[in-house]
Design a protein around this nucleic acid. Structure first.
Lengths: 109, 109
DNA sequence: CGTGTAAGGAATTCTGACACG
DNA sequence: CGTGTAAGGAATTCTGACACG
């Protein structure tokens, strides 16, 4: 819904924006580090968020990390977010006894 | 510099986002309503701002306006902005006697 | 005036593979 | 493991033109 999340760029533009080669970008996809969507014809489509992720990946690769390590860091970050979300939910729940539904609307997404 | 202004989308995606045909999008360009940039090979590249403009254009076309009228409205809007800018500049100047340079840094862009 | 369409060509992307290391 | 590259094919885009109105 936000511009940053919209998958709208082809790989060539992403390549220009990140400085990575098409080959590298596709490879990081096979390693599960990014997940572009596809056009009907099969052309990959990326978002600005994907571009940011790729820049981050590029930096970590320069630091000598391997793709699977980067993936782990990514997973870790995700679960941390999940934890924070649950904590907020739990505290709100304890303090006000609000219904899950309502709290979800406030904290999720 | 902002994501919204970056020219990153091909015409196909813009077509999906706006509901306009490639033909229509190219035509509005010849009428001076939008100005995509080009890749080295000549492929058109659009920004989210262009997409917003196109949606606006589409609405006005539905209202029965002609392209040259839409262009006039657009010019008008631009000059209004320019006027506002100058007024702010003038008032600041009168009130504080600040240098043009400084004021520009605050109001332009 | 605004838009559809067929036409021919060029730019862009896709996949699977070989190569190096 | 990560990346370059040549190969063949398919999807995407480009331009100029004819058509309708």
């Amino acid at each position: 819904m936000d511009y940053k999340e919209k998958k709208v760029m082809t790989i060539g533009i992403v390549s220009e924006l990140t400085g990575l080669s098409n080959r590298q970008i596709r490879y990081y996809e096979t390693r599960g580090l990014i997940a572009p969507s596809r056009s009907e014809g099969g052309t990959r489509k990326y978002s600005f968020t994907d571009v940011e992720k790729l820049v981050d990946i590029a930096n970590k690769m320069e630091d000598g990390l391997q793709t699977f390590e980067i993936k782990k860091l990514d997973k870790q970050k995700r679960s941390e977010k999940e934890v924070r979300r649950r904590m907020i939910r739990g505290q709100l729940n304890a303090a006000f006894g609000l219904r899950e539904q309502v709290i979800r609307g406030m904290t999720d997404r």
